[in-house]
Design a protein around this nucleic acid. Structure first.
Lengths: 143, 143
DNA sequence: ATTACTGCAAAGGATTTGCATGTGA
DNA sequence: TCACATGCAAATCCTTTGCAGTAAT
């Protein structure tokens, strides 16, 4: 659940890229969230610590961090959200009514994953899936 | 796999909306595809038959048809794709390398669906899921 | 005769890009 | 030092909106 600045920095440097304050701030900002941080949230958080930062830099650095797999992204209701990678793999249940997001452990997908590999020869990422639906609360209120 | 203009028209009229040539052309255009038709493809196809049609109309009509559930949409690699609804429910395997899309029968998800309902009280739509990964061909070429 | 729908053009928002400057290695 | 990154501003892309005219019922 925690991200380690040092380790991230090492990985960035290892691959021949540069450790900049902006990139570290971004990692911090993504980490601060409850796990599903939008671009705007990230931008605001970083700007509060480094007012001079530019949106373009945030876009570029997010892409960069995603490519290095230090950060992962998912699409939730049309918005791209970011999370620190390397945490235990998990997925998201998004209620289409109230918008609540809850995490879902990865083991639910293990069978599907191995099945697709054996039967279809398809190696799914199955990473950070977003499942839409109706949460328990909203189902009650609806019926 | 086929769409029935008459039935669609009936459903539109039933709900108090109007059956316009544009809407019928859109349905045809979506149907012509292999099942995952992008906005641009739809727009081009319709324009070839009715050059006067406007992009805004296509956007509006697609939204309209989706709301009536005559058409369903999914996000594949950042692009929204459309399909005629009412076909047997299915999902998509998208290769992140070559971009190939193959259909996946729904039954693979039945267990997950019921499990989430019982265990988490969460009723997933699990409709038109898009699973990214590596297809058999690309896996071979990579290793 | 209504009023939903379309076409047009302009607005809006999100993301990308070119280029000069700055900075980490 | 020198290539990688950043900041800035403009460009681009996708989608939405207001409004006047058109057409389905």
């Amino acid at each position: 659940m925690s991200h380690d600045r040092l380790e991230c920095a090492a990985q960035i440097r290892e691959q021949g890229f540069r450790v900049t304050p902006q990139r570290l701030l971004l990692l911090d900002a993504i980490c601060e969230g409850n796990g599903h941080t939008t671009f705007d949230e990230i931008y605001e958080r970083v700007k509060s610590k480094a007012p001079g930062i530019n949106q373009a830099t945030v876009y570029r650095s997010l892409d960069f961090l995603c490519e290095l797999r230090l950060v992962v992204s998912a699409e939730i209701e049309g918005r791209t959200v970011y999370e620190i990678a390397g945490e235990t793999p998990h997925h998201h249940l998004v209620c289409r009514k109230c918008g609540a997001v809850q995490d879902l452990a990865d083991f639910h997908f293990e069978e599907l994953r191995s099945h697709l590999l054996e039967e279809h020869g398809f190696k799914t990422d199955l990473d950070h899936m977003v499942l839409n639906g109706l949460c328990a609360g909203c189902m009650k209120n609806q019926s």
